[in-house]
């Protein structure tokens, strides 16, 4: 069953670019949320992750801060 994957990013952050590329390379479908264009979504990201840095990934209800390949692999079963 495919999981619901969201990623909170800014357009200029290298780790965000790498994280999105990683998901694309592994054929994972995801919703990209550009927090620079949406302050409400930025606040949502801060509330969910308890911190203020991008990227933040949400796999179903699991929140992963930063481009952490190991946690992403585990959460997605890659």
């Amino acid at each position: 069953m495919s999981k619901n994957v969201k990623i909170y990013t800014t357009p200029t952050c290298p780790y965000c670019i790498n994280a999105k590329k990683y998901l694309t390379d592994h054929k994972v479908q995801f919703e990209n949320i550009d927090v620079s264009a949406d302050t409400a979504k930025a606040q949502e990201m801060v509330d969910k992750s308890g911190q203020m840095s991008v990227p933040v990934l949400e796999v179903d209800s699991e929140v992963i801060v930063g481009f952490d390949k190991e946690k992403i692999d585990k959460a997605l079963g890659l």
Partner: peptide, 12 residues
């Protein structure tokens, strides 16, 4: 933060 390019937009 140590990366204004990354996290700057969060401080609008």
């Amino acid at each position: 933060t140590y990366c204004a390019t990354c996290d700057g937009p969060l401080f609008a």
